[in-house]
Design a protein around this nucleic acid. Structure first.
Length: 267
DNA sequence: ACATTGACCTGAGAGC
DNA sequence: TGCTCTCAGGTCAATG
């Protein structure tokens, strides 16, 4: 689930539900997801404070408190947030539970425990500490900077898009969608792409991510031109009706249309 | 130095 | 039904 569009949706969710409320209690249900400090330190830090704003970089979500601390949340492969009142509505793999003074709770659920909970001094610190590249939708991440990344790596274009040291926020699903929309074979060697190729991938990166955010990162609301909903269903290309192919590229399953996304690599 | 692989977790779904 | 196997939208340490 959680790639850039999903985390952006979580951020907005947190902003609309959990800001400016006293944090009465904090429970860490799974200790080994907490990184860089002890559970008790984290609890002590948050208790009695309140969130005043939220920010995102790549797949990381930060919630800033009035006292100037930043709760860091990473969602791994299965994480999500839920704001609720009744006990019965608590999600089944809650790893962190925050109770507010209005009686409502914010749960961080992460079934597969591949997520992370922590604290940071600022977004800048976090980005440095995790060696993250620019957020895919950062205004200052322009075409020139984008092109430089691809010019100097011999990795497949899909792997380069997904490498968080190069660009933060793009994972397996959205890299496939971006390359489908750009009509580019995911296994193309990055440094072999010409200017026109890179223009296409760069603009589709924005197009796809913004479109997904607008749809609430819910594949059921994606435009019919998107390939994502087809990978789990009919495996039919929404553009040419040809068959979608699945192939391991850079260790991950890539779904693409061999007719619309031709491999131009020399064999 | 850089790219690729395996390991980390847990659960759903396929195949027998 | 129940077992085993494979795979999943992420990341990092180990490996070549």
């Amino acid at each position: 689930m959680p790639e850039l569009p999903d985390v952006e949706v979580f951020k907005r969710y947190l902003q609309s539900t959990s800001l400016h409320k006293d944090i009465e209690d904090v429970k860490i249900c799974t200790k080994n997801l907490v990184e860089g400090l002890s559970s008790s330190e984290l609890i002590k830090t948050l208790k009695g404070d309140r969130f005043e704003s939220a920010a995102r970089h790549g797949k990381y979500l930060l919630a800033k408190t009035v006292r100037g601390k930043h709760l860091v949340l990473h969602f791994g492969m299965t994480g999500f947030l839920k704001y609720f009142k009744e006990e019965a509505d608590q999600p089944s793999h809650t790893r962190l539970l925050i109770r507010f003074s209005n009686g409502y709770h914010l749960a961080y659920d992460c079934q597969r425990k591949l997520g992370e909970i922590g604290l940071a001094d600022s977004m800048k610190t976090l980005v440095k500490e995790k060696s993250l590249g620019p957020d895919a939708l950062d205004q200052e991440f322009d075409q020139t900077r984008f092109n430089k990344i691809f010019a100097k790596t011999s990795a497949a274009v899909k792997s380069a898009l997904m490498n968080r040291k190069y660009i933060a926020g793009i994972g397996n699903i959205y890299s496939d969608e971006i390359l489908f929309q750009a009509r580019m074979y995911p296994g193309m060697t990055s440094k072999r792409l010409d200017g026109e190729d890179l223009d296409g991938v760069y603009s589709q990166m924005h197009q796809v991510l913004y479109t997904a955010i607008e749809a609430g990162a819910d594949p059921r609301r994606f435009p019919s031109s998107f390939i994502i909903p087809h990978r789990r269903t009919d495996m039919i290309c929404p553009r040419c009706n040809g068959e979608i192919r699945k192939e391991k590229i850079g260790g991950r399953s890539a779904y693409y249309c061999p007719r619309c996304q031709k491999d131009r690599s020399p064999d």
